[in-house]
């Protein structure tokens, strides 16, 4: 059954060396839980961004928590490039596994369906095929003769995201953000932080059930108010643009990053 725990208890479910899948900024990023991971000094994570990331990945990279990174991009969006990602690439601080967005979804889909790989359109001609020896070009086994790319299943050890609400049984409202369900279906364990726990049963009506990830796929839930800050949470609050711009400016240098990290962790504690 889904456990409802404190934020710190949820964060320790992520162990060093595990693969951790996280969603794109704006989908519901668990920033409060990320602060707890940073506070706990997590190491050697194999981060999988579904399909890209921004502030969350850059913080984890800058704090030295990452052994490898699979992503289609890391960017702070309107605030510009992700400074610790760029610096980490240059110094070879982690193993880079460049991807393309639909290949990450295809890998998750393979895990969701319990098959070892998934065929995917396009990609042929891209140098990604050279830097991803785990991707292969095969002759289509059915239909007319043609080449097709196949990518291996991605089954993350842990998926971590933030959503507006869960009910007492651990059903989580994800709205139309079905990518959060894709993460949960494929992951061995799913950890969710929410703005609040509600007393009503989210599966009670067709209306609410349609936008809900059932508790079957959810291992742990913790309440974290404003848990995506400074990133946005749909229907709840917009991004804190000024804070993200402040990060983008400070994280250009290693010292600036350290200073930002320290105030970020202090701020998170005050909210909690």
């Amino acid at each position: 059954m889904t456990e409802i725990v404190a934020l710190e208890a949820l964060a320790v479910r992520v162990e060093p060396g595990q693969s951790l899948a996280i969603p794109v900024d704006g989908s519901g990023v668990a920033m409060a839980a990320t602060a707890a991971l940073l506070e706990g000094g997590i190491r050697d994570l194999r981060l999988i961004c579904v399909p890209i990331s921004g502030l969350q990945a850059d913080l984890l990279i800058g704090a030295g928590c990452i052994a490898s990174l699979e992503t289609s991009a890391v960017s702070l969006g309107e605030a510009g490039s992700a400074p610790r990602f760029t610096a980490g690439i240059k110094s070879g601080a982690f193993t880079m596994r460049d991807s393309t967005c639909p290949a990450i979804y295809a890998g998750l889909l393979a895990a969701q369906k319990g098959v070892p790989f998934m065929p995917i359109a396009g990609i042929i001609g891209s140098d990604l095929l050279d830097v991803r020896p785990d991707w292969q070009v095969i002759d289509s086994p059915v239909g007319g003769a043609r080449k097709v790319v196949v990518v291996p299943a991605i089954s993350p050890d842990v998926a971590l995201f933030h959503a507006p609400e869960a009910d007492r049984a651990g059903n989580v409202r994800i709205g139309r953000h079905r990518e959060l369900a894709d993460l949960a279906y494929a992951a061995k364990r799913t950890l969710v932080t929410v703005e609040r726990i509600v007393d009503r049963n989210l599966l009670d009506s067709e209306n609410s059930a349609a936008g809900v990830l059932p508790s079957l796929y959810v291992d742990s839930v913790a309440v974290a108010e404003r848990g995506a800050w400074p990133l946005p949470l749909w229907d709840e609050y917009p991004a804190d643009e000024a804070e993200i711009a402040r990060y983008a400016a400070m994280a250009r240098s290693e010292e600036g990053f350290r200073a930002y990290l320290s105030t970020f962790l202090t701020h998170r504690k005050q909210v909690a």
């Binding site: 399909p51 890209i52 992503t71 289609s72 991009a73 890391v74 960017s75 490039s81 992700a82 990602f85 760029t86 690439i89 240059k90 110094s91 070879g92 880079m96 460049d98 991807s99 393309t100 967005c101 639909p102 290949a103 995917i120 359109a121 396009g122 990609i123 891209s126 140098d127 990604l128 830097v131």
Partner: peptide, 17 residues
């Protein structure tokens, strides 16, 4: 690659789209 002296965000969905 992979320790590019100038690194951009990444390929996004381009290889497919």
């Amino acid at each position: 690659y992979p320790t590019n002296n100038v690194r951009w965000p990444g390929s996004f969905g381009s290889a497919y789209l």
